[in-house]
């Protein structure tokens, strides 16, 4: 486990079927190994099972078949210590201020108050919310609320960070800058990041590796190593390699996306 290239989280033949009158086969089978300290992104057509993958990996819902391990320990039904999740929907607590939202997790694990104050202030500043520390989520825009949720998770310093379209509510410029911040954070903390996104350029710019998923039931149809240096930022978009990566992602995705839309029409 001390080996820097060791697998941090591993999925073996994982599938997920939502039970019910008409069971929905949402995911898999998936075989995947996420390298410790790497930045891994997942792209795939809408409804292909990306959020389901995140749920199963985080231990929020059990796989219908297969095994998951995190840091060598099996994941079953509970979220392991060291895993942080930012959900796709707005999950800020409307009854708490921004500051109390961000402090929520630290207070639960009984961190020293001075330490909480320090870390919360840092996280709030990091997310550009300093002026709104005393505001309630109802007074914030959708993108700001999502930043509260990101701060609430990051302040716990998880070793594996799972992000489900965290920048979905942001404009393109803010998105690029937030991407830079995320990269910086990732470098500073040595955390492993799994980012779900629908923006191909975002995946191409941020990741060490991008997984392309098929239409539902989602499987990985392409795994692409970007080969970016660890020390990178959004200026990478002008690199000639960037266009090639985005193009390859799109060619893998095009037919799958058409399937996803055709199935709905």
């Amino acid at each position: 486990m001390t080996d820097a290239t060791a697998a941090h989280a591993v999925l073996h033949g994982v599938t997920r079927v939502y039970p019910g009158a008409n069971p929905v086969h949402a995911l898999g089978p998936i075989d995947l190994s996420i390298t410790r300290g790497s930045f891994f992104s997942v792209v795939g057509p809408s409804g292909c099972g990306k959020s389901t993958l995140l749920d199963v990996l985080a231990g929020l819902s059990p796989p219908s078949a297969g095994r998951i391990t995190f840091e060598g320990q099996p994941v079953n039904g509970t979220v392991p210590d060291g895993v942080g999740v930012v959900f796709q929907e707005d999950s800020s607590f409307p009854w708490l201020t921004v500051r109390d939202n961000v402090a929520f997790g630290l207070r639960r694990i009984g961190t020293d108050p001075a330490e909480i104050a320090r870390r919360v202030d840092h996280a709030i500043g990091f997310m550009g919310l300093t002026d709104f520390a005393a505001a309630y989520p109802a007074q914030l825009s959708g993108g700001m609320r999502q930043r509260v949720c990101i701060a609430r998770t990051l302040v716990l310093r998880p070793r594996l960070i799972l992000l489900d379209e965290p920048f979905g509510a942001l404009d393109q410029q803010t998105r690029l800058l937030m991407g830079d911040e995320l990269l910086r954070l990732w470098r500073e903390t040595d955390a492993t990041v799994l980012l779900i996104t629908h923006a191909l350029d975002e995946a191409a710019m941020l990741s060490d590796r991008v997984g392309v998923m098929s239409a539902r039931p989602g499987r990985f149809i392409d795994l692409l190593d970007t080969g970016w240096p660890r020390d990178r930022d959004s200026r990478i978009v002008s690199d000639p390699g960037f266009g090639a990566i985005t193009a390859r992602l799109w060619s893998s995705l095009r037919t799958e996306s058409m399937k996803a839309i055709g199935a709905r029409a």
């Binding site: 509970t78 607590f93 997790g105 639960r108 998770t153």
Partner: peptide
Amino acid sequence: VLRRVARMHRLGRVSTAVLVILPA
């Protein structure tokens, strides 16, 4: 999603009820 946040923070049944469900 708030119940899932509670699970992510590994809250027990009582803390989930008091800190998340009731206020919501």
